[in-house]
């Protein structure tokens, strides 16, 4: 990690701001007025750029004052931790994709099975959780609170 964190953050924010301005190009105008839906995105993008420059300035100031970048050490993460991170992200994305197809019970059971493993539980615990929790949560949200959770493949057995 040779790049200072401040510079990376500043660059990302400026890139985001440019993307916002670029995206706002095609917005229509209000009739007979010099601005429209593009006004606020452009003001916000401007604010992002100023803030980003401020963050970069802070970084330069820290270098000049000889303060060490403490981010490098803190960000050293193990492969296992990185895998867990990616695992959770994949679980959320997977749940979003599978929920309408498989239905709540199956999708929730799969999520729990994997999540318990990621957070360090053993297979037995994962199995118990996957079988029991979806039923309880389904009762609370679907039967009591009338939240329409999809049935998916279990539709023939729906109640």
């Amino acid at each position: 990690m040779t790049l200072r964190r401040d510079f990376v953050v500043g660059a990302v924010l400026i890139a985001l701001a440019i993307a916002m301005i670029w995206g706002a190009q095609g917005f229509p105008r209000i009739r007979a007025m010099p601005y429209g839906p593009d006004l606020f995105p452009k003001i916000i993008a401007g604010g992002l750029i100023v803030s980003a420059l401020g963050i970069i300035l802070e970084g330069i100031r820290d270098i000049r004052s000889g303060r060490i970048d403490d981010s490098a050490g803190r960000d050293r993460i193990t492969t296992l931790a990185a895998l867990s991170f990616v695992g959770i992200v994949a679980l959320v994305a997977g749940f979003a994709l599978l929920l309408p197809v498989l239905g709540f019970h199956v999708a929730a059971a799969l999520v729990l099975l994997c999540a318990v493993r990621i957070f360090g539980g053993n297979w037995v615990l994962a199995g118990i959780m996957a079988l029991s929790a979806p039923v309880v949560l389904h009762y609370i949200f679907y039967s009591l609170m009338r939240v329409v959770l999809p049935w998916g493949v279990l539709a023939p057995y729906a109640w």
């Binding site: 953050v9 985001l16 916000i44 803030s51 401020g54």
Partner: peptide, 26 residues
């Protein structure tokens, strides 16, 4: 600057959706 950057990120998220003036999706 980080406080303001955070605020502007939140404001940027809030611009998503139809705008009130002309109803253009952003």
């Amino acid at each position: 600057p980080r406080n303001f950057a955070s605020l502007f990120i939140g404001l940027a998220v809030a611009t998503i959706g139809i705008d009130v003036a002309v109803g253009h999706p952003r």
